[in-house]
Design a protein around this nucleic acid. Structure first.
Lengths: 382, 382
DNA sequence: TTCGTTACCGGGAACGTTCCCGGTATTTTC
DNA sequence: GAAAATACCGGGAACGTTCCCGGTAACGAA
């Protein structure tokens, strides 16, 4: 028999349908609907993390007092404070950062988005940034978009949802629409671009003097007697790719060498394509006597191809890379390359971000350009 | 004149001290303390993220309904649902994952801790794991402990505080106390070790057959005629280091070669020390005719040292590394090495973790051992 | 009619913190 | 010796969700 939980009557109870798999009843005398509570999960299965109210109860004080004891020392008796600290240790209490962030509406985390991180460059930048951010008390979550625009957008959503306080980003080679980054700006979440950036966005940027670096590289090739200098450029969507191409052109122009369109190839940064294009260049009726590549992995792939074809480096063809990956010192011959201050890029990006995070008022975005240095090795001079 | 906010009287008001920088008053007739509210932050400065109640208000429905419309399709009118979806788009609403995690008491994130990630190995593992985890709807936060025990402990605290649902970890070479990992277990947060692990902990582990791999490497050296085979081993704290040493010894024993204590050196994995010890080995009265190293970076450092001393590889001395970093194919001569399935390590770790995360009941920890493969290159045979 | 059912929706507690503010007891000041 | 200041503490709202459960309307069947 069904008993009404209000009037305790047994008759005058009607069924009134099954909702969410549970029978509901209606008591005509009370004029009230009711159903029977679902069995709640057993205590043991429901693993309860120890909270601030647990310690409060244990010590017979209020949760406010515990909270006060835990952070700052205002309005708290030293004895109480110590008691709380002891209890915290005893019960192995861990503050719930989620709740903290929710009420403070800041997560103390910054997101870092990179297009990939198996190469040397991005990990090193991340470490540089992380060190600076950790010092300032920020956590870091790292996303890699795998050079895919879609995953980049998805990552951006995720970071937005997890309420990062700031964003450090180097976008993918596919990215042409930057709305997913503007969404951060719109919410007042500072964004700093490094290495690759969107020129149209009014945010802080950290980069190197790609154009000057490329100029130095090509100048070096010219000064060592090269005239047919090829350039394996990156995709046009990347600013640093464009700038390096500009530096290449500057140098040719400056030394009165006409640019041969057939010697400049833009490609998508995959090693397979690099392989194909290097072979293509070598198969030209008039093959180049030097090759300047967008980055070191490409240069090393080129080096492999060239050696496998029995050509001598640098006698038959010289190679210059970009970024001075550690690996470039290990290949045979050593790779001449343009070094960029990888660690500083990370640190400087982090500092720019911190400046915006810590300042009360709006700070003007800045652009920092770091210097490059030409490292000469056996791939250009013997 | 001060007016009591309760009885509106002007007299019979006393000051009663300044608390937290604000004057407090006491009305004798009401017998009540009061102070004047601090000016709340201006609307503009207080950037309000649009929430579920904002849309509810906008549409004149309750927040429960909005919440229902947003997830699942139970108990929601298609029309209402569409209206909510439109409003969400219009106001660019982003759900607050923090609040979500707080109420669900699960964050849908797993932490990955690695000792370093400039080398090839760990990034690759991370990517493998991340792909599997992303598929299952988990976010990933990556910590690197920089081979420092203290930062490892600090990272563990941070991950615990941010309420990760699970942990994938390869500990530092300094770690001898694993209490910071046991803390996760104690809270029911599953932990999976990969590559490096604590033998005493009852958790899932993913590793490769280090011992068999090392055996194959040393066997190869013996079969190519080497007899004085040195081993640059890793620190004794690492299981894989110990296992590789065991494999080395197995091979010697199996082929009846006596182990020379002076040819086995444990070191701390820094390249500086590697350099010193390789030189030390070469300076021995009877230098080794082969060198098996704990990993590829060490082998490559050795290669550099050996070449710089004018010795020929493999004629004077052969080298075998471990892990088949891409770089090992690029050095001159190519490095013979023991390949491990890097991507699979990450994927398998993630799968083991997911199994524990998704299962209702406790699952038994498993240990997965993945195979290795000897890659023969020019550093052992010419 | 009257009962049972379906289809929706709203109210309010809960998650674990922080913050504001009022209360009480004790001490200092004039 | 009253007024003012200090030192602590507790209550309760807030943060933005989800979840439970009761309420109402409309409809079909007995």
């Amino acid at each position: 028999m069904i008993k009404c939980p209000h009037c305790q009557q047994v008759d005058s109870i009607n069924k009134t349908g099954i909702v969410r798999g549970k029978q509901r009843y209606f008591c005509k005398s009370c004029e009230v609907h009711f159903s029977f509570p679902t069995a709640e999960p057993t205590r043991s299965s429901r693993r309860h993390q120890v909270t601030i109210v647990d310690i409060a109860q244990e010590l017979g004080i209020s949760k406010s007092t515990v909270s006060r004891a835990l952070r700052g020392q205002s309005d708290i008796h030293p004895g109480t404070r110590q008691a709380v600290l002891d209890a915290v240790k005893q019960f192995d209490y861990q503050p719930n950062l989620l709740a903290h962030s929710l009420v403070k509406s800041r997560s103390n985390t910054v997101g870092i988005m990179v297009p990939e991180f198996v190469s040397f460059f991005f990990p090193k930048v991340i470490i540089g940034a992380q060190n600076v951010l950790a010092e300032a008390g920020y956590n870091v979550v790292i996303c890699h978009s795998n050079e895919s625009y879609e995953t980049e957008v998805a990552n951006a959503r995720a970071l937005l949802a997890s309420r990062v306080d700031g964003l450090l980003v180097s976008h993918t080679k596919e990215t042409r629409n930057f709305d997913h980054f503007r969404a951060f700006q719109r919410r007042g979440i500072p964004v700093v671009f490094f290495n690759r950036f969107c020129e149209d966005m009014d945010v802080s940027k950290v980069t190197v003097d790609d154009q000057a670096g490329a100029f130095k590289a090509v100048e070096h090739l010219i000064q060592t007697g090269r005239r047919r200098i090829a350039h394996l450029a990156g995709p046009d969507s990347l600013t640093n790719s464009r700038n390096r191409l500009n530096g290449y052109r500057d140098a040719l122009r400056h030394y009165g060498i006409a640019e041969e369109p057939e010697l400049v190839i833009s490609y998508d940064l995959t090693l397979e394509k690099a392989n194909i294009y290097v072979n293509h260049l070598l198969n030209l009726p008039q093959p180049p006597d030097a090759l300047f590549t967008i980055n070191d992995p490409t240069a090393i792939e080129a080096l492999k191809v060239i050696k496998s074809r029995g050509l001598r480096i640098p006698d038959d063809i010289a190679i210059v890379g970009f970024s001075n990956d550690p690996i470039s010192a290990l290949v045979e011959p050593g790779l001449t390359t343009v070094a960029q201050p990888v660690n500083e890029i990370g640190q400087e990006s982090a500092r720019l971000l911190l400046r915006q995070l810590t300042s009360e008022l709006d700070v003007e975005p800045e652009t920092v350009v770091l210097p490059t240095e030409l490292i000469v090795r056996g791939s250009t001079v013997s």
